[in-house]
Amino acid sequence: MALKGRLEDFGITQLLNLINLARKTGTLYLQNTASDKSSYLCFREGKLIYATMEGMEDNLPVILQRNGVFTADQVRMIQSNMPGKPDRDIAQVLITSGRLQPQQVIESVRSHVLDVVYQVFSWYDGTFRFEPSKLTVKGKITTSIALENVIMEGSRRLKEWERLQDELPDLDVALKFAERPTTPLRDINLSVEEWRVISFINPRNTIRQIAQNNNMGELQIRKIVYSLIQAGVVEVVRPPRPVAAPGRGKAGEREAGGESAKMRRPDVKRGIVQRLIGRIREL
């Protein structure tokens, strides 16, 4: 069953996060309204293995040229000698003949895939469709890129202040380390600024206080916190709700509504719940 929707409602970061956490295999097709371009990204078990974009040549010789491995003349020669050959065959011939190192292929394909994915991060409008189990990579050389760092870097590149504000509207909430982080900290590359924020994470410090302590502006702190949340490193701790006004319920019954709020048993006897179950089964 294909997942589909609008990028305005469900952004690239959220999509990659879903694919990563659900370890999905398949192809994500994207259509951007603003640029009128399309792209697709392929994933195997939650890892990004290939990506391409309309208007961006993705045959291996051109990818190698873009990465400084070959000159334009060399690319023309390779293409005229091996017209229509799939990338895998071209790579094999070039490696066997000693004109190319396997590592250069790996790095160039990886660089191409990352170029594409970081460009689509700026797509805020359009449509998406995820086709599970379908991989459009025939003849292509694939790579395997963990999405946590892609999400971190892509989030770093997010320019739209409004979007960040929408995702993290309140700076007067605190952060805590995720109880079950999706990625060990040692596997994530953090910038100096991100480490500075990490060092202040404590349920007693609000995001605003962390920003003030680090002399960071709202935009910068929002970017950093958003990327850390999306990478599953930290979670927001919502402050307890203020006591309700008289006449609007029993304030004493309230507890923090945040992620960590524990559910409490309702004030009924077990036998009553079992009577409810019995009756509903009979309906």
């Binding site: 919502r238 709700r241 319920g249 309230r254 923090a256 509504g257 945040g258 709020a261 524990k262 309702p266």
Partner: peptide, 9 residues
């Protein structure tokens, strides 16, 4: 989130 904050049931 809103309903959780009203009552932790």
């Amino acid at each position: 989130d809103t309903f959780r904050s009203y009552s932790p049931v």
